[in-house]
Design a binder for these strands. Structure first.
Lengths: 186, 186, 186, 186
DNA sequence: GATGAATGAGCATTCATTCAT
DNA sequence: CATGAATGAATGCTCATTCAT
């Protein structure tokens, strides 16, 4: 009953995420989204007041979801070093599990004006800061963060372009291991 | 000397690079470019047959320029390890020297359908491959490449958002040092 | 008694009258009307086959009602001069009693193609004609009619804009007195 | 040379005035205007930033023009009574000379939110006020104004509907004479 | 009777491109 | 070479109307 109510809204969000992350915001038209869902343009506006609102709703839910996962990692960890391990693991898990969301996030912060405070990265940066002060980090937090998120994102571009042909699992493990080695001062 | 011939054309390319890298392709209109140059829309079409041609010309020249620099690095180097050092250095030099070009390159490969063969990264990847086979690389070439280019790009986003407040020179040095340590197997 | 049967229908007509007279026909949407009534758009179509039908029904009932009042005035009157007095009085009574209806009527004849025969004014004009022929009217019937109806309508615009701040009763009396003086040849 | 520059812009204004005054604001589409001018919709936007801007420009120029005429009347007149005569004459001259402008003005103040201060009527009202205080006016200024402007406007509706078949000149004279008689206290 | 999702035509506006001057 | 008016296709959005529930 209640499932059907927001069935279409959910489909619109999913189609939008797919298209926005692949083609960009301006490049994706409302008609594209409607076609992908299998409805007409007008129907979109029963669920959203504007294209911009779809984007807003997507960025909010993705940000929330990723932040939750990262907070989990921080809270789970017994020690600082272990937290760093978990942070990297959770971020990569998310990126490989939901590449479209991850890509959308990157695109959004690349092209749209965004408050720094809202970026999930800020959460990581904040935590890395404390690790850095304890001497557990090999490089400054911002640089570490750039390597984690930038490296992960690039891997997806490579996969998409056919540069990288390995299975996701193997790629993730290798990236995870090299990042840990890179970041943690022994 | 034929240099003055394409004074306006050069200005159009520069204005386009600036706007495309900042706002994206679709988001930048021909009128925007014309306004930035100080001419009218029609005049653009004296120098380019289409907006798409401006993009094409930009991506070609940026690709060519970056490739040249990278080839230089490879050829200059006395040894494999040293070549890797130089490669990282040259890439970061370029990125920090011409952030708009670097950003444009990233955006282009993120949003537009591009042949892998044309990417400057392919050049690096190819070379890294040979280093990897000699056991000089700590991780697989694609992952290494993802960390170098992804990390560099992300650093610019951070600088733009006010995340990173240090001087360029310091940031570049730190990034360079951590990447070298990361990649080169001792 | 059949009165309750069209409770909602009556509400729709009232809401429509209010909105149409304030904002115009095109400017008032079916959704606006539904919201004002407190139902949904679809429900409107249980009672009317189209937006146009609502307008039609409104103009018909307003026209009928006003005509009835005017006929009453004519029939009531003992003499021609007295009939003129009553005509003016009844018209102003109606306008001040049901300003929305009066406004709707004006707007309709201003913007929509309307048969002259259906206008309540035609009734007045016809009667004025006979008075004119008897030499009781100071000016030609059409001009007299224009002053009566145009003057009354304008008074409402002025009240709405805050131009006129007096009480309705006083305004009506003054308008009535000046119109009688103006029209009746002594 | 300079004439051709704003040739199209002028045509757009004229076509818009014609259509708006006949059909209303919402009822007149940009396509209607373009068709009337003989250009495409897009061309409109080289001369105006929006449909609303066309309306704004029209109301401004009409208001300015009418105010100028009325001020002239006031300044020209040797005495108060004569000024009133001239005011009525000038207003009717304008209305009969430019019925579309007059109609547009009325429609605008009927349907759009307008500042009272900007209405040409305010100019007349202000002047009538001073005449009223001197005892020269038979009725209160607002009522007088309502009869002048409302009566004039209605006459055009009647002409359009075929109610009134006389020549403009005769209608104007009669209206003028009755209004003067009505307003001026002897 | 009523709901609310969906349709489809239409609207204001934008924009890459063309072309006469 | 450059201008700026114009085109025409496309875009985001609105809205009267329909229809399954």
């Amino acid at each position: 009953m209640g499932e059907k109510r927001s069935d279409t809204k959910q489909k619109i969000l999913e189609a939008s995420l797919k298209l926005f992350s692949k083609k960009g915001f301006k490049e994706t038209t409302v008609k594209d989204i409607a076609r992908e869902v299998g409805i007409t343009e007008g129907a979109i506006y029963r669920h959203f007041t504007s294209k911009e609102e779809i984007i807003r709703e997507l960025i909010e839910s993705i940000t929330r979801e990723l932040k939750e996962r990262l907070l989990e990692a921080i809270n789970e960890a017994p020690s600082g070093t272990e937290a760093l391990n978990l942070l990297v693991k959770h971020l990569l898990d998310y990126a490989f599990e939901k590449p479209e969301s991850f890509r959308f996030l990157n695109l959004y912060h690349l092209l749209k004006e965004a408050r720094v405070e809202n970026m999930p990265g800020e959460l990581i940066r904040h935590y890395l800061e404390s690790l850095y002060e304890k001497g557990l980090l090999r490089t400054r937090p911002e640089i570490a963060l750039a390597l984690i998120t930038g490296g992960a994102e690039r891997v997806f571009v490579f996969k998409e372009k056919g540069f990288l042909k390995d299975e996701n699992e193997r790629v993730k493990e290798e990236l995870e291991s090299v990042l840990k080695e890179l970041l943690i001062r022994k």
